[in-house]
Design a protein around this nucleic acid. Structure first.
Lengths: 125, 125
DNA sequence: TCTACTGTTATGTTTATAATATAACAGTAG
DNA sequence: CTACTGTTATATTATAAACATAACAGTAGA
């Protein structure tokens, strides 16, 4: 797995890690039942604390992406396409909210945004 | 000026304040050369520290939205809002492109995105 | 069973950021 | 001079993120 962590990003390390693992799952680089690196191994590789890795794993489990068994390890959960789609929709929602905030602060009318939206989405041909 | 500050938002108070003032400037509620409330007055009104207000004003000045003169006060800067608006539109365009990429990869129909867009933008009441 | 892996939990520390309070200082204008 | 402006310095509190260390607990193979 190709994980790059920036320790001076405004995004917390555990969150960067979560996202990287999610990406690996989405792209099928990590397949169902694949074992994830142990918290200590991954922590060593990334030169971070195992507690930070654990925090990322805990959240991934909470969200249903992995399953963890004490003494055995953490494994990619059986894929739930709906879950993945929900995730992506959430991402999209976040972007739309950012757009909304900008438009509100900058007093940009909704119509102009609709126009942009149309232009970009109609380039599909 | 109608400023509402939430002290249990994840957005820092000084940032909420910045956004509220930017909004007022963009909507022309605050016009060129208008004087902003003094740091102490606004702090009193909002029941926050004047240092928090000052931080917001400092950043607004850094970004060119206001001008501050010691002993006199803070004033809305001469507008070059068109430029700023162009930049904001570019930001929005980037976000829409990201949304487009996600929707394409994840096979999410345009209609669902339109729906989200509607929901978020119609929360204005 | 022993051992070497897994994950878990507890405690304490460091660092950074946000926000606060208080006090003193400095410029402006009536 | 006075009453407003903003500015600066210092200290404190709260919180989140990340870390270090140590001890505990489950799993599986030799």
């Amino acid at each position: 797995m190709n994980i790059i962590i920036s320790n001076n990003s405004s995004i917390p390390i555990y969150e960067q890690l979560e996202n990287a693992i999610k990406e690996a799952i989405f792209s099928n680089e990590l397949k169902e039942e694949d074992m994830l690196p142990s918290v200590r191994n991954l922590a060593n590789d990334l030169k971070i604390s195992f507690l930070t890795v654990k925090k990322a794993y805990d959240e991934l489990e909470q969200e249903g992406f992995i399953k963890t068994v004490q003494g055995k390890g953490s494994f990619v959960a059986p894929k739930n396409l709906e879950l993945i789609k929900e995730e992506k929709l959430k991402e999209i929602q976040d972007y739309i909210e950012k757009i909304y905030d900008i438009s509100k602060i900058s007093n940009i009318p909704k119509e102009e945004i609709k126009e942009l939206f149309k232009i970009i989405f109609e380039e599909e041909i």
